[in-house]
Structures are given as structure tokens and as C-alpha cells.
Amino acid sequence: MKINKNLWFLIIPIFCIALITGSFFYTRGTIKANEAAKANGVISAVFPDAVRYSEATYNKRFLALYLEEHGYDTTDVVVDHVVYARNEQNAVKGLIIYVNCYKKYGGLIQMAVGIQNNGTINGYTILDISDAKGLESKVKEDDFKNQFIGKNVSAFVLSDEPHSDAEIAAPNGARDASGTVVNGINTAIITLEFIDESMGGLLE
């Protein structure tokens, strides 16, 4: 029986499927380990003294309304999820708030903000950012990050010449990304207020 010549062409898709499947199974363990290490790194970077973490439950719709009441556009900023940072006695020491911020001229910054019960900022980590490679690193640098750490204000603002705790200087060439990060951190502060209120002051 003569095999149609075109049937030989099927060898290529079969080879490709085998290649992709083999690569997937060969690398999946390492990829999983990398992702777990990254997630642990994020949590410990923004809340190093917490020993346990648990997912917070809250009404997302009410949080969106609460943010809108405080003047935040929920199409610009979305709280993805919130994690409680707990101490050895299982008491909540603060929150890790995962925020997705949409930038002024398109693009997205995903960040995790660590914030103590009293509203003091522990720090933040950029999880993903769609900006020109290199420029985006400016909002990841310690010089910029340190402007937030240890401060307890109701909202941060960008300023060319910062004079108070609430004023933040934007790095040269990254003003748009800096403004987006400030917006994300302000959202985290409001989210802490909302969760505190909705839990009847449990975070005291």
C-alpha cells in the first residue's frame, strides 16, 4: 500500500508535540520551585517578622465602593487579594495587599504592599511591571522604596522637593511609574482602613 506523501508531513506535528510535552515535564518541577521561592520572597520582603500568613476574606464590591468614596478610580486600581501577616500567637500584625495599578498611558504595575495594623508602611515589592526595561527598575530601587518605609500617613503625593513624610520624590525619567506606585500604596492604606472597619477594629 502506497502512503500518501502528505501523510509524512504529520511527522512534524507529532515531533513538535513530543518536544513540547517533554520540555514541559522536564522543566515543570524547577518552574514550580522558582515560583514558590518568588512568592515566599515577596511575603518575607514586605513582612519579614511575620511567621504565618492566611488569606483575608472581604467583600470586594464593598471595598470597590469604599475606594470610590475616597476618590479612587477603581478602573485605575484594583485590589487583587489581601493576606494577613500573623505573629507566633496567631494575632494579625498587618496586611499584605496585592494591588494591580493601571498606568496613565497604558500598562500595568502589580505590587504587594506590606502595611502594619497602625498604617505604617513596611515596604512594597513590584511583582510585574510593563514599562521600558531599565526605566522600570527605578521604582524597584531602594532609594525610591525607602521614601515609604516606616511612614504612617493618610496618603502619599509626588513632589519635586519633598518636605514632609507624605511627599515622595519621583526618580528622573520614571514619573509616570512613580505616580502609579504612589497610587497603589495609597490604595493599600485605604484597603487597610476598610478591612479594619469591616472587622470592627480587629486590627487594633
Binding site: N6, F9, I12, I20, T27
Partner: peptide, 30 residues
């Protein structure tokens, strides 16, 4: 020799896409 002339672009695409996906997985892992 086994890629038909009329479907050669499809052949290139399948091969290039497969090597890219495999490479992407290795890049992500290592």
C-alpha cells in the same frame, strides 16, 4: 523532503513555534 511545497510556511511555523515554546520553558526554569 517531507514538507509539501504548498504547506512549507505552515511547516516553518510549527517548527519555530515548538522550539520557541520549548526554549521558553527552559528559560523560565533556568
Amino acid at each position: 523532503k517531507i514538507i509539501p511545497n504548498e504547506q512549507r510556511l505552515l511547516g516553518y511555523l510549527i517548527l519555530a513555534a515548538s522550539f520557541t515554546v520549548a526554549g521558553q520553558l527552559f528559560l523560565k526554569a533556568y
